[in-house]
Structure formats: C-alpha cells, structure tokens
C-alpha cells in the first residue's frame, strides 16, 4: 500500500530523516512514536509530499511517486491527512469545510456532497454543528471535523500527525474514539502519536524513531512489554512514567 525506501531529508544542515524504510500494508494501522524532533512528523509529511526528501523513494499502491514530475494533487486525493492544529478553514462552516474538496476537486454535485458530508458528520458525532464556524467549536470538535473533511475525499490511507497533542486532556478521548472506529472499519492509517495506550490498542505495528532513524518496528505487545532495543526501553520508561505522573495529578 505505502512503502518508503531509504528516505533522506534535511532542512539545511540538519538531517531529520536518515535512510528511513517503512512498509504499510492495506488495512494496517501503524503508530509512529518517539521524542519530539525524532523525525516522525517529517516522515508523515514526506509521504504526501508536503515535504520532499533529498533522496529515497515513496511508493503508493505499487507505484513510485516522483515529486517533481507526478501530479501530486491527484495522489494526495488518495492520502487523507489530519494535522495537529486541525487547520480547518475558518471562513467556511463545518459543512463548507467538509464539502469543499469533493465539490471543488472531484466535482461532486453540491447536493450529493452535502448528503455525504452529513453522514460523515454523524459518524464523528457532529451532525448538529454543520452550520457552525470552526471558531465556535472546541478543539476536540475541530479535530473530528478535520477527520470528516479528510474522509470526504474517500482516501485509501489516512495520515494523522499528532491528532490529539493540541487538545485539552479531557478532549483527547473523543478524537481517539473516532480514530479507533476507523481502525475497526479497516482504514489504512499511519498515526504519529504520544498516546501510548492508544498505540497499544489499535496499532498493528509500532514504529519507534529516534534522531531521524527508525530504531525499532514491533508489534505493540512486544514494543511496550519487552522492547528489543535499549533506546526504545529508555524512551518508553521515560514517557510512561510521565503519563503515570500525569494521571496521578489528574486524579488527585
């Protein structure tokens, strides 16, 4: 479905991705974890060519995508993306956000696009907000609209770039619930996340990245219970400890 081969990416002198290889099969959910600055978001952004690597290959559905030559807009229609900061269009209503791309890009008639949008908004639990503007929504609601907006293009794969990192703790759950449901429906997804419990629950594979390299790719049980690499273990003990502290302070 998606294959990344020996991808290298630098910003100026800083090399953020080093010989990254990653393969995601149809219907799989892959979670990328790692410290900030480890390159996981950049990897995600390279997959739909919001960034372009200096070398390496991106294969989507068995086809090599060439960033300079190919019609990237066409390819991106198949690859939905959800951003950390939602990036809803503030000048459009919730409904307007969801139907924008189907109508303008795929030329779906407005009526049909609207019907589909309402179904999608029901799915993310926001049918009653169709006429609201993004500024009137909470962060969790915004992110659910962003998910509906991406789904409206019927993508073959969804990329989530830290979808809950900008949310207040009490709003994280509602967004994760939607993503989990997508996973159950068999959507192929790559999710950059700091939510370890979520990764353990939904991921087929968990990928740990550090300093631009993939350190370990394991099944969740192995990754979280007996990671193979020392660096993974160290990272996990650090974040899991922090999570425990957080939940203690929250319950206190």
């Amino acid at each position: 479905m998606i294959e990344v081969r020996r991808l290298n990416k630098s910003f100026g002198d800083l090399q953020v991705l080093k010989d990254v290889d990653l393969k995601v099969e149809k219907g799989e959910v892959v979670c990328l974890i790692g410290a900030s600055g480890s390159g996981k978001s950049t990897l995600l952004r390279c997959i739909n060519f919001l960034e372009q690597g200096q070398s390496g290959e991106i294969w989507i559905e068995g086809r090599l995508v060439e960033g300079k030559k190919d019609n990237l807009a066409k390819i991106r229609q198949e690859v939905g993306m959800v951003f950390q900061l939602f990036n809803l269009f503030p000048h459009k209503t919730v409904l307007g956000n969801v139907i924008e791309a189907p109508v303008m890009v795929k030329k779906v008639p407005v009526k049909q696009a609207t019907e589909e949008a309402v179904t999608l908004l029901e799915k993310v639990g926001l049918a009653d907000k169709a006429g609201s503007y993004p500024s009137q929504l909470s962060g969790g609601q915004k992110q659910r609209v962003a998910i509906a907006r991406a789904l409206a293009m019927h993508p073959k794969v969804m990329l989530f770039d830290e979808p809950t990192s900008a949310l207040d703790p009490e709003l994280v759950g509602e967004v994760l619930t939607v993503i989990k449901q997508l996973a159950r429906e068999g959507m192929t997804m790559i999710v950059v996340t700091h939510e370890m419990a979520f990764a353990r629950e939904v991921a087929e594979w968990v990928v740990y990245m550090d300093e631009g390299r993939i350190v370990e790719i394991s099944k969740p049980a192995q990754m979280f219970d007996e990671p193979r690499e020392a660096r993974t273990r160290e990272f996990l003990s650090r974040v899991l400890q922090k999570t425990d502290q957080n939940s203690e302070t929250r319950s206190a």
Partner: peptide, 13 residues
C-alpha cells in the same frame, strides 16, 4: 497560517 495551504493541498487541491 501555512497550515491552511497544507490542509488544502492535502485534500488534493
């Protein structure tokens, strides 16, 4: 915000 262009591009525009 740059994210607006990125979101639009990511939708296939």
């Amino acid at each position: 915000n740059r994210g607006q262009m990125e979101a639009a591009l990511s939708l296939g525009m």
